[in-house]
Design a binder for these strands. Structure first.
Length: 704
DNA sequence: GCAAGGTC
């Protein structure tokens, strides 16, 4: 085979699209790694288009000893089970297959094109591959720059190749370094302090994104706990106009003094009202903008109460089945190159969407209502037009994406708001009506439209309304809302921390660490442990829980990218500041650990009831963690007061759920082993006559 | 058993 140019893309899907944009490509599987490679002729040259699968190289701690800090001596190494996806050894094996394929292809290549996503992380991904898998080829490579992977743009990118920006790569690599140095060292300091100040090890962590996110929740929780409810009074009135009800509220929505409210109540009770003013205003509501990752996550939470992480996982599945476009995007734009007509024709073939899709198609000119946010590598999320076969939540998320896409092409809706002032003995009450005059895009987005309508009878100035009743209600000012997973994610977006692909993961990590917990129906609250971590960080390493760290880091990285700053100086400056914090942890570790440890202990001793006690009949069986051995077991709430000795061992690992009560009267628990692993159901009663696998419970458990 | 960032 003659020589060729090796094109390195960020992910397999991008390689496929880039290859097919250049010409008719033939796909083969590399013998070196078993991953896809595309051969294509373009402008008289042979190209082999291959891809990574995100980052194949990450920073690693050379010493590999997790109990030692500070760790400042880092190296770039292939993802392996030790540095990267510990929870997922498959990830490391997968990375190895891509690296093997690329290094094999690099040997036969005479030139290289860096065609990863054109952003900071993409620059790093390509840089590592060209340097480490291809043998120092970054400086000799050429950069393809594109904002979306359409045929035209890919060709344009290949026609305007230029030297890659090593400044951008340096900025990206420095970002990795800073996050590792701050995150890993402070996490180790936390965990080591905990170990020194209390019994046992606990996996604690903190980082540039985790820190402020946890602080958002903790600070909100404090606001809630410190909130002092102030009373106020609300007056409403119900009138009647020829048998039709008119509901109105007093012009002042809140009255702070009871005496004032009473005075109005007395003055108005039993007196008819006169319409003193009627005004109607039309409003034009523009169609919604197409979904980016966060918009979709928020909308799926609002409508279906899906967590952001779960929504993204479902969207990912839909993407892998070619039903929707790439779901990790910041973009609220739909470039014409995605071919609106093609997508709509596809949807027209699906019975659910055929009517609205055909109507849109028949108009000819299609212009989506784009939002302001853009993404260097992907358009907004849209359906591909491939007919879906889905059910359950997958269908719901797909339907939401499909209807949102349709709605963005709809006409603006027109609504009318009518305000009516009603005079009662010189006091003014207000009634409000809202009506949709033209539904436009709303028809395309049903049932997901969020708009309240309220109707009023025809009213004119001078009309007299019979007063049915005036009601005075005492209310209290409310504390702010707790964050939901969706609003916490929105807060992260607003503060520009984390990325569209990682925000949901960060929230999941905080749950896993037991820093935050869901308080039934009222949202997320910080746990005692979460509070303790924020508090101790504010004292010893305040930047890690503030968004300022991200801001100042961005500034430094910008300096590197512009050539105004050197990476070593930036890193050294960060290290100097961090070392002071770490020294404090080293000196006061035991004290810090005791503070955090006592917070963690309140938690592990928290009462978790799993059922009624079958022995004493009036106590409750609870999961208890022994203070001395730290082992968990089942005990009766009457142990201390009533001397009930009912107890049972528990498996020490795995999440426990109560499924039902066994015929013997004790609870049957369901234990999860590992992530997404099998669940194991068993009665906790050691003497259970109905149980077959007593031996296996004994093996997996320990007596308190 | 540590971060944040890619992607599956």
């Amino acid at each position: 085979m003659s020589s060729y140019t090796l094109v390195v893309c960020e992910k397999p899907d991008a390689a496929r699209r880039i290859a097919s944009a250049l010409g008719s490509a033939s796909e083969s599987r590399s013998t070196a790694g078993g991953v896809s490679v595309f051969d294509v002729m373009y402008a008289g040259r042979n190209y082999k288009v291959c891809s990574a699968s995100g980052h194949l190289y990450v920073l690693a701690d050379k010493t590999k000893n997790r109990s030692v800090y500070p760790v400042l001596d880092l190296e770039w190494a292939p993802i392996d089970s030790g540095n990267g996806n510990k929870k997922n050894a498959k990830g490391a094996a997968r990375a190895a297959r891509f690296i093997n394929t690329i290094s094999f292809l690099a040997r036969g290549a005479d030139s290289f094109i860096h065609a990863c996503d054109y952003d900071q992380e993409g620059e790093v991904i390509g840089h590592s591959i060209l340097e480490y898998a291809c043998g120092g080829k970054y400086d000799k490579s050429l950069r393809a720059k594109f904002s979306t992977l359409t045929d035209d743009e890919v060709k344009e990118a290949f026609a305007t190749l230029a030297k890659p920006s090593s400044r951008l790569a340096q900025a990206g690599r420095s970002r990795h370094m800073l996050d590792f140095i701050y995150g890993v060292n402070l996490s180790r300091a936390l965990a080591q302090s905990f170990k020194a100040g209390s019994s046992g090890y606990r996996n604690l962590s903190i980082g540039r994104v985790q820190g402020p996110t946890l602080a958002f929740v903790a600070d909100r929780e404090l606001e809630i706990r410190l909130h002092v409810p102030d009373p106020y009074w609300v007056l409403t009135a119900d009138f009647d106009k020829d048998g039709q009800a008119v509901h109105a509220r007093y012009e002042k929505p809140r009255i702070e003094k009871l005496a004032q409210a009473r005075a109005v109540l007395d003055a108005c009770t039993g007196r008819d009202g006169t319409v003193s003013k009627v005004s109607a205003k039309k409003a034009v509501l523009r169609p919604p903008t197409p979904f980016n990752t966060g918009d979709l996550q928020r909308e799926a939470y609002r409508l279906f109460r899906l967590s952001p992480g779960y929504t993204l996982a479902i969207a990912e599945k839909l993407y892998l089945r070619a039903l929707v476009s790439y779901p990790r995007t910041s973009s609220q734009k739909l470039p014409p190159s995605i071919n609106y007509a093609k997508v709509l024709s596809g949807l027209a073939g699906v019975s659910l969407y055929s009517q609205p899709a055909s109507t849109l198609l028949s108009r000819g000119r299609l212009v989506p209502n784009e939002g302001l946010m853009a993404d260097p590598a992907h358009p907004a999320i849209y359906p591909t037009g491939v007919a879906p076969r889905l059910s359950g939540l997958e269908f719901k998320v797909y339907d939401l994406i499909a209807k949102r896409f349709l709605a963005t092409f709809g006409d603006p809706a027109v609504t009318e708001r009518t305000d009516v002032s009603i005079n009662v003995n010189n006091h003014v009450f207000l009634a409000e009506g809202r009506a949709v005059l033209y539904d436009g895009w709303m028809a395309l987005y049903r049932p997901y439209v969020n708009l309240e309508q309220s109707t009023l009878p025809q009213l004119h100035e001078g009309d007299v309304l019979a007063n049915r009743q005036v009601v005075m209600e005492e209310k209290f000012t409310q504390p702010p809302w707790r964050y939901s997973q969706a609003s916490l994610l929105a807060k992260m977006e607003e503060e520009k921390i984390g990325t569209k692909a990682t925000r949901a993961d960060t929230i999941a990590t905080l749950f896993k660490r037991n820093y935050i917990a869901t308080k039934k129906a009222s949202g997320i609250e910080a746990t005692d442990l979460g509070f303790a971590v924020v508090e101790s960080m504010r004292e010893h390493a305040p930047t890690i829980v503030s968004t300022e760290l991200t801001r100042s880091m961005e500034e430094q990285l910008e300096g590197i990218e512009q050539g105004m700053k050197e990476p070593v100086d930036v890193i050294e400056y960060a290290v100097e500041r961090l070392v002071e914090s770490l020294a404090t942890f080293r000196e006061q570790g035991a004290t810090i650990g005791r503070q955090i440890g006592s917070a963690a202990a309140t938690q592990s001793n928290a009462v978790i009831v799993i059922g009624g006690c079958p022995v004493c009949k009036n106590g409750q069986l609870r999961i208890i963690r022994s203070r001395t051995t730290e082992k968990r077991f089942v005990g009766c709430s009457n142990y201390a007061s009533g001397g009930c000795r009912a107890s049972a061992p528990l498996p020490q690992k795995g999440g426990i759920r109560v499924s039902k009560t066994c015929q013997c009267g004790w609870p049957i628990i369901s234990v999860a082993f590992g992530r997404g692993g099998k669940r194991w159901n068993t009665c906790v009663n050691m003497q259970c006559p109905y149980k077959r696998d007593r031996a296996s419970l004994a093996r997996r458990s320990a007596q308190p």
